[in-house]
Nucleic acid binder design. Sequence first.
DNA 1: ACAAGTATGTTGTAAAAACAACATGTGCGA
DNA 2: TCGCACATGTTGTTTTTACAACATACTTGT
Lengths: 219, 219
Amino acid sequence: MKNYLMQIKKSRLFAGIDAQELEAMLGCLSATVRHFKKGDYIIRSGDSVSSVGLVISGGVHIQREDFWGNRTILSEVSESGLFGESYACAPGKPAPINAVAAQNSTIMFLDVRRIITTCPSACAFHARLIQNLITVLAFKNIMLTEKIEHISQRSTREKLLSYLSEQAQVVGSSSFDIPFNRQQLADYLCVDRSAMSNALGQLRDEGVLNFNKAHFELL
Amino acid sequence: MKNYLMQIKKSRLFAGIDAQELEAMLGCLSATVRHFKKGDYIIRSGDSVSSVGLVISGGVHIQREDFWGNRTILSEVSESGLFGESYACAPGKPAPINAVAAQNSTIMFLDVRRIITTCPSACAFHARLIQNLITVLAFKNIMLTEKIEHISQRSTREKLLSYLSEQAQVVGSSSFDIPFNRQQLADYLCVDRSAMSNALGQLRDEGVLNFNKAHFELL
DNA sequence: ACAAGTATGTTGTAAAAACAACATGTGCGA
DNA sequence: TCGCACATGTTGTTTTTACAACATACTTGT
């Protein structure tokens, strides 16, 4: 376990917990580590998940298979990333997704019941751990809600305005940079890149906004 | 506070906690109750929220105001419902939304720090409370993720198939009922009702599925 | 059984998006 | 500086959607 402390420490789940404490906690949480070969299934659709996965090395693809067997990659989890936390924290809800090792990977599993149930004995940092878990879930929640707000809009134009308006509000200025290039923005908003480019040009022509590369200004 | 126990007990946050314990806990959590007139702001965009709101009576609209001042209602919270939990659990993230009393309302506020920080003294049920909070966040997370999967699809047809395929999988059968009427389904999938009706008819003609009212069968 | 209201399906039209193919621009390394 | 790779913008065509208006169930209350 010692070898993995570096990666574990970087995880948001263990934020604010110092290295010494960390090692003790991992024992207390009865963390287990397993290795997976590229292509191995870590979680199978239908599994009842009770553990959070933490990627120590390698990477994981979260994928879904629909009724007709078509697979889609929903997200990619890289080093120090978490996966399965929602299902592990939602008792009685079998995971509807597969987690597959995208490369040879080392994964640490933490039983959520161990995290939630405070050991009344030691673990000064246990409260912090619970707090971190809650924070992780809450932030994810916020991100998802925001995305839904944007892609709920009917037209590309409205999706853009929804996204850009929100970005302006978070930085508190009508002038800001976005963390996406055009293709990434189009993917995020679930629209066609060229159609989006069109909509952007149109908005500029109408004097609603200005932009240059990743820099935008609302007018 | 006693008068409100009925509504409070129904909240998912207090699931599995018996009535006697409940009253003691509310004191320990220093729950506060406030009344709002219809139209009053409960949370204002930009506020740093540290409390979860629990609707004891009345109802709350969660609304957003964009850069140009256009308001949209994002969700409605009714009796025994929670709101603000994501922002209360995400430290340092000011709420980007307004919570407005939709009617004259009575709201109980619970400081999340009090919930998260286990009182080492009493409160046998405190662990359960924390667990409930985590469960609430996790389930919401799952719901949001599922919705994003569906509305990420480019065409109405694909959105329908994504949704229906998932429903079939959760019940484990190709034959199932959905909890929406057509208009509600269209709203959920963020598409036009009549266009959706068309797509459904087309899918039936192609022999992909059958339906009758809210009953569907995938083929 | 009837009427009124609601839900669902259908059709035609105008607007918008997806798609493809290409033009221009920008940055980077040889 | 040149050329290459990649990002962005542009254009035209096809497909899809939104919208509106209407037809046909189906429900509910009287």
